[in-house]
Amino acid sequence: MASRIFQDSNKNNAGDFIGESTVTQSCEPCMKTNISKAATVFCKDCDEFLCDTCKNPHIVYKTGQHNIVNIKDNKSAPDIIDMKGIDKCHKHEREIEFFCQDHSKLCCSSCVLIHRKCDQVDEIAKVSRQARPELQALKQTLIKLQSEADAIIADCEQSETDVNESFAKISSEVDEMRDRIIQLFEDAKQKFITEASELKTAETKTIGNKRDASSKVKDEISKVLSMCSVVLENGTPSQQYIYSDSIKEKRKTIESIIYDQRKIKDASTVTVSFSKELTSFLEMGSNFIQLNYDGNKTGNYKNN
């Protein structure tokens, strides 16, 4: 058979008498919170032992039908359990009937022939009464492990939420830093344009004054040259002497004006320069942003 019959006395009672000691079944939901509390009822549909406190939440919040029976008053028919082939020898496909203590191995009637020289081969039917307390302890251990697995799953879900939130946060942080840099550049540009405009106005004025002064002295020179040409061509020696002497002072004045205008330096071109910190920043390329990771892996991820 692929299934075995377990009597109610082996599963559904609150406890079994082993010699003079009593094994009490604990409430399984309480066990998940590390609380030891005796079970008073059993849900056949969920295969779960419950105390009076956990019974109502189990019925209300857990989906499905719930056949709740009182452990002490449970007199129902024996349950048939499908052992899923666990009670069959995988090698000989026969029912397991023996246990070899020497090799810690379950044996069928064919396997036991191989272990006939072993010192202790027990018939399972005779020693099975000792298995219930051990199985109950194992079940309670598994319940605790299940609770730990649930905690790990909850941690994973929280970690996934944290990862999603942190990735959304770092994106907004990068955008914020970008906007700050752009605003800083805009502010610097406005200040720079204002200063450049003031400089342009001053330089334009200087150039205009220099040009006006030079234009006036040029007109004066033209007048003097015109008169000088007439005196040289048509004037008498006396007239040439007088005119030559009279324009000596004017020449000195003209030379002084020309000299002063030459000393005035004007900027023909204007350039812009950037700080070393900014040029160093630009030389970094996209590596100025780093992704920091506080997981189990070592090192930092870098945005290359």
Rank of each mutant, 00 (worst) to 15 (best):
K210M: 02
D212T: 02
D212S: 10
F192G: 05
Q183A: 14
S197Q: 14
V174A: 13
E157A: 12
M177E: 15
E198V: 15
A202I: 14
F167R: 07
G208K: 14
I182H: 03
V174S: 01
A154Q: 14
Q158W: 08
N164G: 01
T194H: 07
D155A: 07
S172R: 13
S171C: 05
I152H: 13
I153F: 11
A188D: 08
C156W: 02
M177C: 06
I153P: 00
F185D: 01
D162G: 04
I170W: 01
I170P: 00
Q158S: 11
E157S: 12
A154C: 02
A188T: 03
F167A: 07
D212Q: 09
E195I: 05
L184K: 14
K189D: 05
K169M: 01
K210C: 03
T194Q: 08
D162C: 06
S171W: 03
F192H: 13
L199S: 09
E176K: 14
F167H: 04
N209I: 04
G208A: 15
E165W: 08
F192L: 12
K205T: 09
D187K: 08
S172N: 12
A188H: 00
E195L: 04
D155Y: 02
F167K: 07
K189Q: 07
D162T: 08
N209F: 05
I153M: 11
I181C: 04
K200G: 04
L184C: 08
A188S: 11
N164D: 11
R180A: 14
M177D: 11
D175L: 09
I152D: 09
K200F: 09
T194R: 04
Q158A: 12
R211D: 05
D212I: 01
A188W: 00
T204V: 03
A196E: 05
K191V: 04
A202Q: 14
A154L: 09
A168C: 02
F167P: 00
K200W: 05
E195Q: 10
D179I: 04
D187T: 09
